[in-house]
Amino acid sequence: MVNVLVTNLPYLLRGALVTLWLAVIVVTVGTLLGTGLGVLATGRSRILRMAITVYIFVLRGIPVLVVMFLGYYAFPALGVRVNAYVAVGVAQIVYVGAFTAEIVRSAILSVHPGQVAAAKSLGMRRAAILREVLLPQATRIAIPPLVNNALTAVKQTSYASVVGAWELTYAAREIVERTLASFQIFLGVMAIYFIICYPLALLARWYEKRLAVSH
């Protein structure tokens, strides 16, 4: 019975590799983008703050699958031809970026205002305040939610299969439609995702405990 899973494992592992690729790129670029936007969202330009707030609000209010579809259809509509991976990847990056921006912004704003008052009183300018006072303290606060965010992003790469990009879940469905061994294959695939995701969950929890202790 388990044979079906074993026979098809190489194919599934190739899919897992694609999933990992996608996940790494999406999480890295998305987190960088989101961090930049999150920092800007605490800055002095009201227009920028409002624009980023709108961006976060819109993206958090629509399903990531719909964003992926938008990405898939928006590029051709603008006359650019890209493959499914780029379209879905860009869409997910924009999505992860919004959630990251909100996490980073919250973390920066949660640093005690007295810290900023003290830094300003020494004559420090905004860039130095961010670099020396806000970001070091905000980073520690932001890491657990950011790791959880990454975990979610990894799981969401599976939705790319619905839009037509080939990765682990797409491969799984192909095999099931051919062999009808749904339990073995999907449970096996769940195990693969679990192996990728669970360490991230543990990391987030471990870091959260560390934070709680030092306060």
Binding site: H112, Q115, A118, A119, K120, G123, R125, E132, V133, Q137
Partner: peptide, 19 residues
């Protein structure tokens, strides 16, 4: 900021940088 360089202040809640 330049003026603040010349006016020192000490707060009730210290506001030392914990890190």
């Amino acid at each position: 900021a330049k003026v603040r360089e010349q006016v020192g202040i000490v707060f009730q809640s210290f506001n030392l940088f914990p890190h």
